[in-house]
Structures are given as C-alpha cells and as structure tokens.
C-alpha cells in the first residue's frame, strides 16, 4: 500500500515547528476555517471537491502561512522568558552560594528541576522548557562524576585482584553509565533539534558551566573534600550562570534568529573571558580557541540539522 501524500495541513504543521499544543490549536482553527469556507461555497452550488480546493488555494502556500503563524508566536511573553531564566539563576545560587554542599537543598533543587522538566514535557515543550531540560541533563553529568569519585578509590584493589565482586560490578556499571549518559544527552539534543536547532542550543547551554564546575571540584579534592579553595571559581561560575539567565531571556524574547545566534556567540566569548582569571597563564590564542570551541558546541545542533537535511 502506498503512503498517502501529505495534505495541506501536514505540510503546514511540518513548517510550524512550535509547541505541540500550539500547533494542534492552529491546525484545528484553520481546518474549521476551511470547513466554513467549503460550507459557504457548497451552499452556493459549488461541488465539495472544487470548493475545498478553492478555499485551500485562497490560503496560499502552507510554508508561507506557517512562517507567518510562526512569527506571531516567536516572541516569548515575559513570564515565560523569566520562567526560562529561572533554572540558570537556580544554578548560580547553588554554585556561588555553595548550596550544593547541603544535601537537603541539593536534593530539593534536583527534584524541582526534574518536576518542572516533566511538567514542561507534558505541556508540549513550551519555550521555557528547554533551559530547565538543559539543567536536568546536567544531572547525569554530576551523578557520573560522583560515581567516578566513589569507584576511583576502589581501582587499586581491582588492579591488585583483591576487589570484591560488588566493587567489580560497580566499576563495570560506571563503565556502562558514561556511554548511556552520552546517548541520553545526544538523544535529547536530536529530539529538540528536530523542531528547531536553536531550542537544542538552549538545551545544551547549561552543560559547559557544570563541566567547568566538575573540573574545579576535582582539582579542589573532589566533592567530599572541596572547600574554600574553590570559592573564587564558584563565584565566577555563579556570575556566568547569571549572565546565561540574561542571555536566555534575550534568546527567548528576540524575534530575529540572527539576534538569538549572536547572543549565543557573545555568551560563549563572555563565559570563556570570565574563566581567564582562573588560568592567567593561558595565551590569547588559547582563550580564543576555547571561546571558538564553546561557540561550536552551543551551535552544534545546527550542524546536526544541516546534515540530516542533506541526507
């Protein structure tokens, strides 16, 4: 059996690339508009098939109508933009205030992030969802580091052959955890990029900060031993997340894609510049390379989409 050719509304939906609930609402409204137009023409004596073709023809190309509808929805209202910036401010408070060292607060923050992310997923992935989902994706990274820390102490025992079966299983589990974690992150990015690669970039944006934090914690002696020696780093990372909160608002509120992309690039440069006091020996070229790498990382979903379109 041959697949049905895409209808006008299939093509419209393909180009809308908005929240699922918004897309459904738009399509339902336009379908009811077509029904009204067809009823009118049929009542005037036009055969139904011709009437439908005429009404749909009046609506113009689905790509054009989708583009116009999309533009009407592109600007995120202030409350939603602020909701999108909140997880970045939460990260700033957790890191700069070293609140992550208090298990109850760290657990409460994790539960909040997961709950809001699931709520956003249930709501059809509105624009504020992606920063929350990005912060949720940092959790496997942190959990992976904790697992690494716990098991690192057991590696000498494994090397000498005196490790218990539990330790062997634990190390094997950790070995499996990292590729699985990577698959989860890549999968989430691909799903987000299918609608709009900029959503996927927003999703990725909290990850580099957490990665930098993990490196800082590791240099400071690990999660259990990290102390005041990393206070400077914590404050810088806190400032970085506050900057990202502002950048998130700009990205969500901006109508032009150029502004959104430029904001991402500026954020990459600003974040790397913020980190230079920690590595005062780094040459300008190294700093530039880091900024470039971060920019490429944040904009990498565009490459994924570009490659899948070429295929």
């Amino acid at each position: 059996m041959f697949p049905q050719p895409p209808t006008y509304f299939d093509r419209l939906r393909e180009h809308l690339r908005l929240d699922d609930s918004v897309e459904s609402d738009i399509v339902r409204e336009l379908q009811s508009h077509v029904e009204d137009g067809v009823d009118r023409l049929v009542h005037e004596g036009v055969p139904e098939h011709d009437a439908r073709a005429r009404v749909i023809g009046r609506m113009g190309r689905p790509q054009t109508l989708a583009h116009l509808m999309r533009r009407a929805h592109l600007v995120t209202p202030w409350p939603e933009a602020l909701a999108g910036a909140t997880p970045m401010l939460l990260m700033a408070a957790l890191i700069a205030g070293t609140l992550w060292q208090q298990p109850v607060i760290a657990l409460a923050a994790s539960v909040l992030v997961v709950a809001v992310t699931l709520f956003g997923l249930f709501q059809g992935r509105p624009t504020w969802f992606y920063p929350w989902a990005g912060v949720a994706l940092t959790m496997p990274l942190v959990a992976g580091y904790i697992a690494f820390e716990v098991l690192r102490e057991q590696i000498p025992a494994l090397a000498s052959g005196s490790a218990s079966p539990t330790v062997v299983l634990g190390i094997a589990g950790a070995g499996l955890y990292f590729p699985v974690g990577l698959i989860v992150v890549v999968g989430a990015v691909l799903v987000a990029a299918r609608r709009d690669w900029l959503d996927a970039s927003v999703l990725l944006s909290p990850l580099p900060g957490v990665f930098a934090w993990i490196i800082a914690v590791h240099h400071a002696g690990g999660i259990r031993h990290a102390n005041a020696s990393m206070a400077g780093t914590s404050q810088l990372l806190g400032v970085a997340y506050v900057c990202m909160a502002f950048a998130t608002i700009v990205v969500l509120r901006a109508r032009s894609r150029t502004t959104k992309i430029a904001t991402m690039v500026v954020v990459a440069v600003a974040l790397v510049s913020l980190g230079t006091p920690l590595d005062s020996q780094a040459a300008l070229l190294t700093v530039g390379l880091r900024a470039g790498l971060l920019g490429v990382f944040l904009l990498s979903p565009a490459l994924v989409v570009h490659q899948s379109l070429e295929r």
């Binding site: 738009i26 409204e29 336009l30 508009h33 009046r58 609506m59 113009g60 054009t64 109508l65 116009l68 509808m69 533009r71 009407a72 929805h73 600007v75 209202p77």
Partner: peptide, 17 residues
C-alpha cells in the same frame, strides 16, 4: 483581509494579551 493576514494577527494579539 486574507487568511495569511488575519490568523497571524489574531495569534499575535492573543500573545500580547
């Protein structure tokens, strides 16, 4: 007024409250 003008305007006005 065409559909391409009306519906985006309705949705923009809705988004702006």
């Amino acid at each position: 007024i065409s559909e391409g003008t009306l519906y985006p305007a309705l949705h923009r006005l809705t988004r702006n409250g």
